[in-house]
Design a protein around this nucleic acid. Structure first.
Lengths: 340, 340
DNA sequence: TTGTAGGCGTTATCAG
DNA sequence: CTGATAACGCCTACAA
């Protein structure tokens, strides 16, 4: 009989070996009792469970990750957390991944490709089992990092090159559809308010331009673009600037609801009647838009569903399956309310 | 000269040893070149850096965490991500922790103490070096987990028992102050709309009640409480119910700005003049509140600063220092605008 | 300034 | 069903 040497650990926390020692079995058996209970006799299992409960043992993820060469975690990169659009995406992701035992490493790139790159580098050190990333505008280095890591990736929000996995919608089409709606309503001098100018906004803008062009209603004076992050306050400000550069504008397509809400507030304040004097449309259908006065016409985007589907697709790829199809277009809905 | 045996790794990724082998040195030297460059000769350092760049080597956090018995990560538990209040707290936390090399594990408890407990259990497996948690309403098991883990904790938003570390404000006082403001403005039948009913809302309610009591203006019919999560739509709905149960109400203190915004939208729709017929006050000073019509009187809470200070305090404790004082009251600001 | 030995806590592998 | 052994990749301690 060998004398078990006392095992003073550096961290002082309880380990598998501690539990094993307590009930005179081996660490590996305790490990099995936890991970594959059906491979352990009921008697031992009961003892082990009791010891675990007594001691408050918590498995050490780092050790597990090291031994198994996988971390049960997924890195998620979004451009912003203050935009509820991405919060809803995260909710969809979480609801899929959580039940499968995955942890989520959330990274906020603050709309910067450089930040995205450094965040990704940082997260790759955790050897995530998969990656969910927003859009397709990665730096070359980011793309290289992803390629080298060999982990499955699913892009969110936009649809891209056919060889990539993605769940999203055609931002161009949505921008086009909203503009068509305004044209069909009879508006003729349709402006566009753009903020942040991230790739998705630029796509919407392209859709807007295409629709105007097609209808012979091109209206350059009506375009107002600003790199500033979108906000209600910015909407207020941009309306003022727009009315100066295009006083005869009769409809305004805002690249998102924040901006549109600011515009509506300012219209109220100035006594501009919406939609009679100026029609206002937004994008994304945020919570306030259904209640503001007048209720805002907008494009509803399926954020939760995008997160859900992207996570589901990633799950398949992490399990080695090949998701079919590789690109899922979840579309958009034109929600016509009172403001147009 | 010993023959180096080929090192086929399970994961296939590049390791310190790979780099070392490439340039004929040892793993530990490469480790030092990365972590304590001043302990390695310039010549070797240059070679090592080159090899790292060439191979795209990324350190393995799990191995590092295991070896050092610390993870350079901090667990953060908030009740909601859809409430921008907590997003701003996260921003403050991030801005402090990120530069110090800490990763943030974000947990959304969805206002459930049970979820909080299971999230904490999950995150403790990552052996975070510290914990930031919202409020003081933990389950007994949660408290036990925290105690056993022996990691430093800082509570956020509220102030609590003197032996705990916390950064926040006296929700009771803020509720009291807003109610005093309404009383001083001359309103006499002041109602209260409460949603979610989390501990902080209940504190504000208590402050409201105390102020009314003190002024001899107790107005039970004016209290309307609903467990439903707060939202603009709920504000609309609650106003309707309130006007039925307390038609003579002349001021309404909403437990947060979402609710208040819904109330304002519905007042507009019904032609109720604010503040002449009904004064409306909110709580938190969300972005829209400064722009809505009429502009909303509310309590501004220092969310970013709370996150920032809490993270700073945690940092001190993680470095073994004892922060002084242990409780930081960051206060609140009564922002009087047009709605009262 | 560099290297060797050994351990961190868990799991894969293979043997009983 | 159970266990011994050897990784996993990195770091501490000590030695040279």
């Amino acid at each position: 009989m060998s004398i078990r040497k006392p095992r003073p650990t550096r961290s002082g926390s309880i380990t598998l070996a501690d539990i094993a020692e307590r009930i005179g079995t081996s660490a590996i058996t305790v490990s099995r009792a936890i991970n594959t209970p059906h491979l352990v006799s009921a008697a031992l299992r009961a003892q082990i469970d009791a010891a675990i409960a007594e001691t408050g043992y918590l498995p050490n993820r780092a050790a597990r990750a090291l031994a198994r060469a996988r971390s049960d975690s997924v890195a998620v990169l979004v451009p912003s957390l203050s935009n509820t659009v991405f919060i809803e995406i995260l909710a969809g992701i979480h609801d899929v991944l959580q039940p499968h035992g995955y942890r989520t490493l959330i990274g906020d790139t603050r709309y910067s490709a450089a930040q995205e790159e450094s965040l990704l580098r940082a997260y790759l050190e955790h050897s995530p089992d998969g990656l969910l990333i927003t859009g397709f505008e990665q730096t070359a280095a980011t793309r290289q990092l992803i390629a080298n890591s060999r982990i499955p990736v699913v892009h969110m929000m936009e649809l891209g090159p056919a060889d990539a996995c993605a769940v999203g919608l055609h931002q161009f089409d949505a921008g086009f559809a909203m503009t068509r709606h305004l044209i069909e309503r009879g508006y003729r001098r349709i402006g566009f308010l753009g903020a942040q100018l991230d790739p998705r906004v630029m796509e919407r803008l392209a859709g807007y331009r295409a629709a105007l062009q097609q209808a012979g209603l091109v209206y350059p004076a009506g375009e107002l673009l600003d790199r500033t992050p979108s906000s209600i306050g910015l909407g207020v400000q941009l309306l003022d600037r727009l009315l100066q550069q295009a006083p005869d504008c009769d409809a305004l397509f805002c690249c998102n609801d924040d901006l549109a809400q600011g515009v509506l507030f300012e219209c109220q304040r100035r006594g501009i009647r919406v939609p009679q004097q100026l029609a206002v449309a937004g994008f994304n259908d945020l919570a306030a838009s259904a209640w503001i006065n007048p209720r805002l016409t907008t494009i509803a985007t399926p954020r939760y569903a995008i997160g859900h589907a992207a996570a589901t697709m990633l799950l398949q790829r992490m399990e080695g399956r090949v998701p079919e199809p590789a690109q899922i277009d979840l579309g958009y809905t034109l929600v016509v309310r009172e403001s147009t």
